[in-house]
């Protein structure tokens, strides 16, 4: 009986002493933190993607409160969310256009000449060996370095080609940094028409290795309402993102190689195997 009592008292005493010590320490060494930082961090999406340029959402929340960084710098938060944070802090909300990533290549395994490659399954490794596994020196390698880097699982590798899903992509730009071919660009999300080719080679050279390359036939330039809407850059045509064409253009043009595509349909797989 005495043993039970003594051990009970001992345990209670130990607990009480430790509680007092910790409580006293918490009081004595209290660090004052701006309570707004936590609230703002909670209001952020919590994706920790680093797209804002800070080390995670908590760090960005701190920067918003302490340095007055605009909340709209977060690529994930919608304009409404950013506005809510700005309102909470009494800041002026800034509108920022939403961007998404586009992989400027349409050459899958079935439409591209491919050379054998048995190395590490990573684009950056493959690039060290004769510029990758595909015949085109400028196209997507398809070993998913970008898909692994994407914190939102917005990139799918289909038929050896990286395809961005526009509805999942938030435009953080993580993939842009990983692609060794510099194929991925951030474009305004409102534009749906893109040229899925990046090769500056002449048309016939491109066609030899890829069925879906842009051969600069200028059909799309002529079909556009305004000649300015598509820009000709050497042997490659590009959407003018400052003066974008409407989505109808793809159908009106009837691109002979299907390099001109709608991002939404491209992600849905509508162009697979349709090259002429």
């Amino acid at each position: 009986m005495t043993i039970i009592l003594t051990s009970l008292i001992f345990a209670a005493l130990l607990g009480a002493i430790l509680a007092v010590v910790i409580g006293a320490a918490a009081k004595a060494f209290a660090v004052e933190i701006d309570p707004r930082i936590e609230t703002v961090t909670d209001m952020l999406p919590g994706a920790n993607c680093g797209g804002c340029g800070y080390a995670g959402c908590a760090d960005f929340g701190k920067a918003i409160v302490e340095n007055g960084v605009p909340p709209s710098q977060c690529p994930v938060a919608s304009a409404k969310d950013a506005g809510r944070i700005a309102e909470y802090l009494g800041m002026k909300a800034e509108e920022k256009e939403k961007v998404i990533a586009v992989v400027k290549c349409s050459g899958g395994i079935s439409t591209t000449e491919r050379s054998p490659y048995n190395g590490v399954n990573d684009c950056r490794s493959a690039v060290l060996v004769a510029g990758g596994a595909k015949g085109c020196d400028y196209g997507c390698i398809g070993f998913a370095s970008c898909a692994r880097a994407c914190p939102f699982d917005a990139i799918e590798i289909r038929d050896g080609l990286a395809v961005v899903h526009p509805d999942l992509c938030v435009g953080c730009g993580k993939c842009v940094d990983t692609c060794p071919k510099n194929l991925i660009v951030l474009v305004p999300a409102s534009v749906d028409v893109h040229v899925y080719c990046n090769s500056p080679e002449k048309g016939p050279v491109k066609r030899k290795v890829c069925k879906t390359a842009c051969i600069a036939c200028r059909k799309c330039v002529k079909a556009a309402d305004n000649e300015d809407q598509m820009i000709i850059k050497g042997f490659l045509i590009e959407t003018n993102y400052d003066n974008p064409p409407i989505s109808d253009l793809v159908e009106k043009t009837g691109c002979p190689t299907t390099a001109l595509r709608l991002a939404s349909k491209h992600a849905a797989g509508a162009y697979e195997g349709v090259s002429k």
Partner: peptide, 11 residues
């Protein structure tokens, strides 16, 4: 550990 954490956060 709790104590160390508190002190570390301060100093």
């Amino acid at each position: 550990v709790q104590l160390v954490e508190i002190i570390l956060q301060k100093f």
